[in-house]
């Protein structure tokens, strides 16, 4: 283990559904800004957080086009925190649970995401200074 702090997070909630996803990414962002090494194990619906086919949409009810609506996309947030970690000398290893991906058809993740198993989460936790599991309800 390097001297750099390493933290592991397990997330379970699908995007656009619960504040837990936002809080998880806020925590990851803080770690990234500090230059920590970060591991994220995405389980169940959370494998859709870095789904590459998320698209912004207009909002006809409010009369806004795509640009005006500026709909937030979790895949962009995930990519952004990975860039932030690298810019500050840290790393972010994002692992999507492979079985969760398959049963949801969520295989088209952004490039930096890798496929894994709960065994990866165990290995990440073993190699980390600490871990936080953010369970779904």
């Amino acid at each position: 283990m390097s001297n750099r702090t390493t933290l592991t997070f397990a997330v379970m909630d699908a995007p656009f559904e619960d504040a837990r996803s936002t809080t998880a990414l806020r925590l990851v962002d803080i770690c990234a800004r500090r230059g920590y090494n970060i591991n994220v194990f995405a389980y169940e619906g959370a494998v859709y957080l870095p789904f590459a086919r998320q698209e912004p949409h207009p909002n006809a009810v409010h009369g806004r086009d795509v640009e005006e609506e500026d709909h937030p996309l979790p895949r962009e947030w995930v990519a952004a925190v990975i860039e932030t970690a690298a810019a500050n000398g840290g790393t972010l290893d994002w692992v999507n649970c492979g079985l969760c991906v398959d049963e949801r058809g969520a295989g088209e993740a952004i490039e930096v995401v890798r496929r894994g198993t709960p065994g990866d989460f165990w290995a990440m936790a073993e190699a980390s200074d600490n871990s936080l599991v953010i369970p779904t309800r």
């Binding site: 702090t5 933290l7 806020r26 925590l27 803080i30 200074d129 600490n130 871990s131 599991v133 953010i134």
Partner: peptide, 17 residues
Amino acid sequence: SLEVVVDQLAAGRKAIW
């Protein structure tokens, strides 16, 4: 600030959500 959570995780506190 939420920074406190990261501070305490980094310090090795046992955390439960």
